[in-house]
Amino acid sequence: MTLHVSPPDTALEPAPLLSAAGVSRFYGERIGCEGVSFDLWPGEVLGIVGESGSGKSTLLRCLAGIDRPDEGEVLFRGGAEPLDIYSVPEQERRRLMRTAWGIVHQNPRDGLRMDVSAGGNVGERLMDRGDRHYGQIRERALDWLSRVEIAGARIDDRPRQFSGGMQQRLQIARVLVSEPRLVFMDEPTGGLDVSVQARLLDLLRVLVRDLGLAAIIVTHDLAVARLLTDRLMVMKDGHVVEQGLTDQVLDDPHHAYTQLLTSAVLTV
C-alpha cells in the first residue's frame, strides 16, 4: 500500500460543488434538522458528527436527494449551471444520483444487489451510464475489485458469500467505479469489527485522496472523522452547533456539546 499523493491545490476553484441553504426537515412536531447551510468545494471532505438522533442522517438524506427537505434548497454544480436538485424532475434527480453522485450505505445490503455477482454489482453502474462493451466492463470491474482488495477469483461470487467487511468494500467499488464527483457515506465503518474498520478506513482515505473526491461522511466516531475529513459540522437536536477545520474542532472545541463529545472519547 502506497501513501496518497495530496490532491492538486483546490483553494482557487471558482465555485462550490454543493451548496445547502436553510435545509430543514420536520417529522410532525419534531425537528429532524433545521436551517443547515454550507458550501462544499471540489475535493473537500466534510464530516457530520453527533450522537444518534442528532439529525445527521436526516440531513444526509436531504443532501443526497433521497428525502425532500421541507424548507431550503440544495444546489449541485455538476456543469456550468447550478442545479436545484429538488426542483428538477424526479427522473433527472435519479440520473444525477446514478452518475455524478455515489451513496455508500451503512449496511452494504442497502447498496448492493445481493443476488447479482460481485462483477455484476460493479459493472451495473457502468451500464447505467451507458457503457456497453462487455469485455471492458468486466475488465474495469476486475480493476476495481483489486483496488478494494477483493481477489479477482471472487468476481462471479454473490455478495452474500462475502464477509461484512468484504461486502462493504464491494459497495465502495460499486459506488466509485462510475467516477462520481461527490460521495455520501452514512457510517461507512459502522457494524464492522475494529480490525476490519482500520483496513476499510485506510482504503477510503487513499481512494478519497487519490481520486480528489468530494465527500460528505456521517459518523458518530470522532477517530473516523479525524482520519478522513477536512472539515466538521457538529450536530445536536437537529442544529449545527459548531463547525470548522476538523482538527481545530476536535482539539479546541468551543461549544459545550462539542466539548462533551470530545472529552467522552477514551484514548488507547
Partner: peptide, 26 residues
Amino acid sequence: VPRTVLDIRRRTLGFVSQFLRVIPRV
C-alpha cells in the same frame, strides 16, 4: 476557511511534534 488553512499547511506551514500520527499499513 478550512480549505485555505489546509492549503497553507500543505505548501507553507509545517508542524513538527514529538508524536507521529501512525496510519495503519503505511
